[in-house]
Design a protein around this nucleic acid. Structure first.
Lengths: 382, 382
DNA sequence: CTGAAAGCGCTAACAT
DNA sequence: ATGTTAGCGCTTTCAG
């Protein structure tokens, strides 16, 4: 209840206040003897330094600002491992985490820096063109972006290597002899904002499919939920890839060195199962066309598999399916390319602290991409 | 980049520093003329008060500490609406949110208060016997608990009215003529910690079922995931309610005024469908026994419905099912009793701010329970 | 290796 | 209605 100050500690330890301070910060050498006296006094009073006073005098708040996206729904659940890991890393270095929601836009950033609420900022869910990035760059506080914008404005970025993720998935399907790839993309909310990772993933998939000479078509927008999954399943099975309302990302331009991209509708492949079939066994199996489906949204995978099954199509037998999702969700369920939120977060925090107190080592790279891993389960045909 | 102080503002506005302060806090009346001068100066310099200095001098940090559970998985996703709403309420009153993870235990609480990191604390996911509660009570900082412990130690509590939730579900099943209720409970992690809401819900369901004279059995522990859902489905259909490894909450004692509780195995009801049946139509339908299933964990509902369907049992036709979950998850999918995370959070924050600056009105109640709502969809037989 | 003293930028008496 | 002034509790020169 009643709180003690470093002055009290100093008095009890029989030293000066500055000595107490130096014991805490380690910014100058203290004889082991006085060190112990001070520590004992701190213990005795259960002393805790006043964060505000420290921030005022020392120009260090020991707080990390964390700006998180908050759509309420969407990939909200995927957010928690990030937050948790960041909180954990902060704690490891005796820092606190101040939470700011993205809906506050640049104002939140300005507050964090202007009011000296934190020493550094982690900015999540970066868009391809993100108005906050230029603001963040002028803040006078170290900022690490989780995501890669068009122009990082000199800020450090950490993210999953989505291009590699797309490559992994497409290569896997190519290696297993598929002759068509359907990329089930994101919802309108993501594609219309041109979220950077979506763009990177899509482009890379197209390029890689081109290199393999495999036609790739994009299904988009695909929202979350059972109904959307049903529609997607139908469109995959009927080869109905006509574009729908929304703002599909799919660019008309081909990647420069890329191989051919099949026009929509080319090389028709027979549907693998009649719609509405309720029994487990599909009829039109093994007709020659091998479809590989890549699902970009982790949350869409399960309902999509379900919808396909209801239509008598079993992933791993009648067609192949690879999802992009945290390993946890995929476990025992489908072949996936992992999102590695923990690795990404940890890298972001390492970078942040490196920026805060530069260590002698080699300079950190401006853009750090964390390698995804492909884990084979049972949804890709051999 | 370079930051201005209230002294700068004062100089430019041609007033004293204290006047600037009073303009910001509104703690004494200022003539409109000087007020405008000051505001203009602040604008011109894009002045922002230094949070640390303010905390030091004013003994107010304008920060709310938020202690969140972090099991990584579990009901993690259900957490976000809470966090989001709390962040929003804080922002409305110009407060920040400092995030602390529950794995830090009481140490986190001590830090928050001892270092004067925040003015008040929201403590989530309270256990029936929670070691943090007595600590929180001695902190010298207002604390609001989200959840109701055995002994609140004088702290204010806000939570969903889980007893009412159980009553709603049981009453609904009673009103629709069910003669047996199966309560699909929580996983070992929850029941072994005797999380308070689980206990409250369970006891209330038992009591209410007793009042209606409907036998109620508890299936527990039930973990998340497909496999667990399959097992639960099997056990429901085969009436295998023998207890399993884990620490089932189900108390041997009957509620004092309660009606009879059927012993396990009493009044056998024929299974509604043979196991392993793959076709959509169930066979043993309408045999007279009407089973009502109450699913306490929101995340279990979907996989359970799925598992039941695979066994030819359709909720709403062959048996009834009511889930406890946020409306969002239930939408278009099953009859549910809502968890109202936003209402709970808002009440918690209102209480917190009331505690921070007591308003003249009537004293706030120590325990506030938010009423759940039952929304009828299509999983309860008429 | 340790002390003494000067602020950090703000708020809140105490004055007028 | 406004100005003056004394700290809030810590860090960090500057001295020894």
């Amino acid at each position: 209840m009643t709180s003690f100050t470093s002055k009290d500690v100093a008095r009890i330890a029989g030293v000066s206040q500055s000595t107490v301070s130096y014991v805490m910060t380690g910014k100058r050498s203290i004889s082991e003897k006085t060190r112990q006296k001070v520590l004992a006094a701190m213990e005795q009073l259960t002393y805790q330094p006043h964060a505000g006073a420290r921030a005022l005098a020392g120009r260090r708040t020991q707080v990390i600002g964390l700006v998180v996206p908050f759509d309420t729904d969407g990939k909200a659940a995927a957010l928690l491992p990030f937050i948790e890991t960041i909180a954990h890393c902060a704690r490891e270095r005796d820092h606190e985490v101040l939470l700011v929601t993205a809906d506050q836009g640049s104002a939140g950033l300005r507050r964090l820096a202007g009011r000296a609420l934190c020493d550094a900022i982690v900015l999540m869910d970066i868009l391809e063109h993100d108005e906050r990035v230029p603001v963040a760059a002028e803040l006078g506080v170290p900022v690490v972006l989780v995501g890669v914008p068009d122009d990082p404005a000199g800020l450090h970025c950490v993210d999953l290597d989505f291009e590699e993720a797309a490559r992994l998935a497409v290569d896997e399907l190519a290696a297993t002899g598929h002759d068509e790839i359907v990329l089930v993309g994101w919802g309108a909310a993501v594609t219309s904002r041109r979220t950077n990772y979506a763009v990177r993933f899509l482009r890379s998939a197209q390029r890689q499919a081109g290199l393999h000479g495999i036609p790739l078509t994009v299904l988009e927008p695909v929202e979350r939920g059972r109904e959307a999954a049903r529609q997607a399943a139908d469109r995959i099975l009927t080869h109905d890839f006509t574009s729908r309302p929304g703002h599909p990302i799919a660019p008309p331009a081909l990647p420069e060195g890329g191989g051919r991209l099949a026009p929509l509708g080319e090389q028709p492949v027979p549907a693998h199962a009649a719609l509405g079939e309720q029994s487990g066994r599909a009829s039109g199996r093994g007709t020659g066309g091998r479809i590989g489906v890549v699902v970009a949204q982790g949350t869409v995978v399960a309902p999509l598999i379900h919808a396909l099954r209801l239509r008598g199509v079993v992933p791993g037998r009648d067609l192949s399916l690879i999802g992009v999702s945290p390993d946890q969700e995929a476990e025992g369920s489908f072949t996936n390319v992992s999102e590695e939120p923990r690795d990404v977060s940890r890298r972001a925090m390492d970078t942040l602290f490196q920026l805060l107190d530069p260590a002698p080592g080699p300079a950190i790279r401006a853009i750090q991409l964390v390698a995804p891993r492909l884990t084979r389960r049972n949804t890709v045909m051999p």
